[in-house]
Design a protein around this nucleic acid. Structure first.
Lengths: 213, 213
DNA sequence: GAACTGGTAGTCAAGTTTGAGTAACGAGGA
DNA sequence: TCCTCGTTACTCAAACTTGACTACCAGTTC
């Protein structure tokens, strides 16, 4: 599962109604084009696809108000909201060593209640620990790990990453328990959206930390 | 860049000559179908594509020797070997937070000389450190990190992952410096390939650590 | 007032990935 | 002898991703 659907649904939902370019800008504001596949083509594709599947409604809007071609605005449906919450919960709990999925979910975690977020993150930690046990038991040959030669470093790397991920998650749990951030039902939510009319300092093609790819 | 080309080229190269199913089995033996996109469709696609691009030669072989449909054997070309080494070097040095690419490269790291491997890994560490500096300078708003709200946790997560990745890489460097593993030009290489005729204990659809996805 | 620049908004073809499906063959049982 | 089952080996359509490209308009410059 890629992060694109979660990102797009979440962005549309934050606006109430948004067109593709707006979603794209929001996601670039988060740096999402650098750590996920949230690039224009994927965004527009996801919007169309999810409109076809009834998660979004497409409103054909005539010419743009600020120049440029006409645009299509999207609105999230009930079904889309359900899908959004499902994806969000899954992305927070599942440990699949795809950092982009977790990153995307972090951006929306405050859409849940504080208690639920904590529960999901604790489940995440449990999941990682179980995965670690299973994988070390299963992939270590009967005649000891030495048999694997350098191939064993692959597993070593996974396990190291898992441990580090668990540790980080525990830290996040502590911060949330300590009252950090504003969750659903706790008053004016923090919205990671560009103020109307402001220039995006993080948009594409800028002097950015060079992508290491 | 996905890990599939590196994995396929490396697997074919290890055999000298291999057909798709053999590659698939090798990769499953490594658990690659769990941590990368090395699934049948992708493997066969990559083989065909790279044959078209002159990195592999396809030999049409008549019926299989052990039952099943006729199979195509592939052999790596000069161009393919160059591509392979380029990918391998890039994957070892570049920090792009895609763990599957590094994992794949670990499986083949011994195809390089010990000194070169060490150099590349040290470059990797430097790369991570630079990335960290750039990203923390660039993404922290002028009025302090608090402005970002929970969105800041995304960056926090990246930075934590980067630090942990750097630490792990330093450990690997120490192990290699300490004489671990057999590198190119150091005698009989370790080959992570199933012994002829042996059953793969890690193949698809088995009782495996459940994929967390 | 014509040409240029830059932002807005999106399209498209080519390539890649996924997951399910197909086909050939041998072994073993009824 | 026929039938089924498991293994071997690969195919395919549908979905997704990528990167480059197009088109529109406003404001500025010459």
């Amino acid at each position: 599962m890629s992060a694109i659907r979660l990102l797009v649904l979440g962005a549309v939902r934050q606006h109430g109604r948004a067109h593709g370019y707006q979603v794209r800008n929001d996601l670039e504001y988060w740096g999402a084009h650098e750590w996920s596949n949230a690039k224009p083509g994927s965004i527009y594709h996801a919007l169309k696809q999810m409109a076809k599947q009834g998660m979004l409604i497409a409103h054909e809007i005539a010419p743009s108000t600020v120049g440029g071609p006409p645009r299509t605005e999207y609105e999230i449906t009930e079904k889309g909201t359900e899908e959004y919450l499902t994806l969000l919960r899954e992305s927070l709990t599942s440990y699949d060593q795809k950092p982009d999925v977790l990153s995307a979910a972090l951006g929306f975690v405050v859409d849940l209640g504080r208690d639920e977020a904590l529960e999901l993150l604790e489940e995440r930690v449990r999941g990682i620990e179980e995965w670690r046990t299973a994988v070390t038991e299963h992939y270590v040959p009967d005649d000891g790990p030495g048999q694997l030669g350098h191939i064993g470093e692959i597993m070593n790397f996974w396990v190291h990453s898992a441990d580090s991920g668990a540790e980080w998650t525990r830290g996040l749990i502590q911060r949330i328990k300590g009252g950090a951030y504003t969750f659903a039902g706790e008053g004016e939510p923090f919205v990671g959206v560009l103020p109307e009319g402001e220039k995006n300092p993080y948009s594409t093609g800028e002097a950015h930390p060079e992508d290491a790819e």
